[in-house]
Design a protein around this nucleic acid. Sequence first.
DNA 1: GCCTTGAAGTTACCG
DNA 2: ACCGGTAACTTCAAGGCG
Length: 792
Amino acid sequence: MKLEFWILDVNYDVVGGVPEVRMWGVTRDNRRVVVVDRGFRPYFYVLTVKGGSEEELEHIRRALAPYGLLGLEVVEKKYFGKPVKVVKATLANPRLVPKARESVARLDFVREVLEADIRFYMRYMVDNAVYPSSWHAVDVEELDKPPSWKVDAVYLAKKPPVHIAEDRSVPELRVLAFDIECYNRYGEPDPERDPVIIAGVGDSGGVRLFTAQGLDDAPVLREFTSHVKNTDPDVIVGYNSNRFDWPYLLARASRKRTRLNVSRTNSQPAQSVYGHFSIVGRANVDLYDYAEEIYEVKVKSLENVAEYLGVVKKDERTLIDANLIYAYWDDEKKRPLLLRYAEDDVRSTYGLAEKVLPFGIELSSIVGLPLDQVFAASVGNRVEWHLIRQAFQYGELVPNRVERGYETYRGAIVLKPKPGVHENVAVIDFSSMYPNIMIRYNISPDTYVPPGEKVDSDEVWVAPEVGHRFRKKPPGFYKRVLERLLEARRTIKEKLKGLDPGSPEYRVLYERQRALKVIANATYGYCGWSGARWYKREVAEATTAWGRMLIKRTIEYARKLGLKVIYGDTDSVFVNYDPEKVERLIKFVEEELGFEVKIDKVYVKVFFTEAKKRYCGLLADGRIDVVGLEAVRGDWAEISKEVQEKVIEIVLKEGDPWKAVEYVKKVIEELRSGSVDLEKLVIWKTLTKDIGEYEVEAPHVMAAKQLQEAGYRIRRGMKIGYIVTRGGGEKVSSRAKPFFLVKDIGEVDVDYYIKRQIVPAALRILSYFGIREEHLVGGRRQASLFEFINQK
DNA sequence: GCCTTGAAGTTACCG
DNA sequence: ACCGGTAACTTCAAGGCG
């Protein structure tokens, strides 16, 4: 019988000594099924001195005998492009692979054991080109369904499923959002002590809340579990659920001697790779993982992220002080507010999922990691899995992870900007510069020619400055991988042109081209990452070297044409927009250098200071770009960011810096008079390490210490919000106080905010126009003149 | 011993 | 655990001056 199904989750188990890959999915007729394949066995490769001589095989056979060896075979593969003979050792049981590997690695003629660390179900998917979040056709026969399994049918695959690559449709997935609230009378909730007072669940139909009876959460756990079972979602989404909700619920369940059997095999969520919890048969997605990649949102609370993505506006939802959740629970009159808050969290989470899942689905199908893992995996791991997939298709062995020392290499060029306001400026960009460089010059670990090796000079590309050589032929690994990605993206972008932007097809393909771009662009960074399997410093180093050459030659030619080069960074040049000359420049880059460039944008006005990577520009439609400046940084007080934004707007739109001065003075007055929201004075900074590891007493570290003393749990990675107060010493750090402990504007060190926040942010723009601090503060001329003289 | 100065530590940005 | 380049802040200690 033939079956088509869309793969949601993949796992395996060993049944009666036989490993069984289980592919959980949704059929064309919307049934939930699992397709099992019992025909696949784990294996790994052994790279030996003699390429698998009889004697070597005998030794390997003996070493592997205790681990259920099924067979040894000498196979031809490629290792960094070079043909090699390796011994493929096939075992019966995936669980014995790690031990077997160790046993073989000890043999003295064994150079390396390869691919022994690839998880069994991933091995299965890679080898059979089975892709998660994609449709497959498979020949099956139906099996008896174990009574505890939550599926419509269980099938046995006669052969591995075949990917239907051209069909990017997505079945109607049942998505369940959830969120829990815990009792926190004693600070950070502790599952050993504090119950789950509310568990909210929701989908497109609405939200349901399960509540504790007083402080007994047994009903919450029970009802939550049965709700999941009954609604049988394909995707379960939470916010920070891998780090909080799931471990908490599991700990509560264990304490209450009950079980959280929410999976499709009636098992509990289990800690799995990349710190995520795996729920058999479903995709357990933690949207916080996605939020971490949205750098525009500085404080990544659910409500901020939901607002940013246009899901639920902050003023359309209930917000309460999370530290007081217990009080809302204890007080019957306030409890409805807490319930609304919980409901809004679930709504936001569900809304977020609608925005984010389509991208995750495409990413999952491209890199080949199951949907829930792709969210949890780091960028490096995503790229790596994509490469592992490709390596298999090219017959390349996957290199092992090795511990390496950290090495640096030169990166891109950044030009010194020409300070001031420039009108009519075109920004010309190389399209996907690094991927295209790697393709054009065939830069790859397997094409690299080490210094000692003799090669005819016209057979290699030689990187400028650094001199690394790469064979022109055959196409290297990175080249093939990147060409495929860029080509796929081009095709999709072509298709998009003919589609209605409101249609579901458009959405899917749009997200797909975005995912392709993300992976292509991250591949250069990956190759220079010392933790990468395919790391090669020379590869990364040559790529940036060619990048420098390209930008230099582009700038040279622009100047030759008589264009003024105002700025440039890595793969972009800013020139005065003379359409004819710009056209010639583009032609030059395309024809002489062989790279694609495009006009990315044209600024009506753009303003630079002397600093690199910081500018602001006005576009024809009235929008303003702010790049690198304080206004777009998360570690400046809102008040300074607002001031700078407004100053930029006045300067660019009205061209009157002195009007901006008046505005700044007004804000300073408001601050002095105390009519400013405390919220606007909060400075947020990330704790990038554990609190004990800091060498200096930075303000946010001191604020964090105060929080710790007040009983808050402080963890690396947290954003600390503080306000600088008066008194308490010279150092800013001695005056920094956690923002919510500051109750009155009277406590605030207004002077700090004026002199170290507002003035610097404003002057960053205004000092170019001859405006100085004394023009913004003080007001009285005498004082400023006096200060001026004193400075000299 | 006080004040200036610059290095070091730290964070967050750009592409 | 993707890269290097960059600005700018705060702290801290060395160095200079008296």
